[in-house]
Design a protein around this nucleic acid. Structure first.
Lengths: 168, 168
DNA sequence: ATGACTGCAAACTGTTTGCATTAGG
DNA sequence: CCTAATGCAAACAGTTTGCAGTCAT
């Protein structure tokens, strides 16, 4: 029932300390943190690293559960995510059953997802369709900017009942 | 901070008992209730009537607060909305700060909204832009149908900081 | 008749907050 | 140093659930 998707979570070294600095997205995230006037702390870097490993939106609880033993407190993840969101590092991509699923903002073309209402499983839409939606959304953003809205963002999510084959 | 928008709520007779049957949307809603195998009860009709009066998505609490004195219990609104949603009478249009805002599904062209992150005020996008978004969303739905998804739905919401003038 | 619906109270769950402590710049 | 960030425990808010009584069909 809770949102799931094959994550790279349990892939390799979790308590890693070396490959952390190599991920280009992590480095970018780090600099964005600084430019947003936020402090670069150990818990935050761990959260961001875990976030980078995700292949699709994750819930805060899921993210925290996937972190090493006691990488940081659940509350810290909540506060960190709030800060990241304010700083534009992350965005709430899906809201499913009262829980938000986050994703890193990579400046890369956004991909929208479908969430299965029976299994909670998440799947991405094709790049083409996502692209078209992006274009339409861009027009909307433009209209809103024209009306004086600042920091315009949007969230688009599809839901449906996935075919049995896809459910597992 | 809570979502607001000029509603037709306090317009005229609230405890009205006569104009209730005249609204075409209400009649439609009533028949949809029946065809969905749901019972037509007094509380539900009051909820649907209130819903019809809304000009934009409303939260359950707001809807309940706007009902006559004790038209029905808050819990009943929650359960009624859940039933309406299952029956396709209503849909969750926006999710703002942990609260869902609902809207009647009229089969009419859907209009998307922007919610101001500072005032919580809701405003509709132009019909043109909404239309384009609709078209793009339709393609996505098609893609999903092709993949075997059933009962595909979507939610699209914009957010931003409205210009001071619009804030009040 | 009879099962769906309602009301009331209590439970839940995701999220937030206060405060003392720790640590980043 | 000085302030932002963390951890812990407790508070919150929206939503859900159990159960007994009621009403639509």
């Amino acid at each position: 029932m809770s949102p799931t998707l094959p994550t790279a979570e349990n892939s390799s070294a979790e308590n890693a300390s070396s490959p952390m600095e190599t991920d280009p997205r992590l480095i970018l995230a780090k600099s964005r943190l600084k430019s947003a006037g936020l402090r670069v702390t150990q818990p935050r870097m761990k959260i961001l690293a875990a976030l980078c490993r995700q292949t699709s939106p994750v819930s805060i609880e899921h993210l925290h559960a996937g972190l090493p033993a006691a990488a940081c407190n659940l509350v810290t993840v909540y506060r960190g995510m709030a800060a990241f969101e304010r700083g534009g590092l992350v965005h709430r991509a899906v809201i499913h059953e009262g829980t938000s699923l986050y994703q890193i903002t990579l400046g890369q073309p956004e991909t929208y997802h479908v969430i299965c209402r029976s299994s909670g499983k998440l799947a991405p839409l094709s790049a083409e369709v996502s692209g078209e939606l992006q274009k339409a959304a861009a027009k909307a953003r433009e209209e809103l900017r024209g009306k004086g809205y600042r920091e315009v963002a949007h969230r688009l999510e599809f839901s449906g009942v996935a075919p049995p084959a896809t459910q597992r």
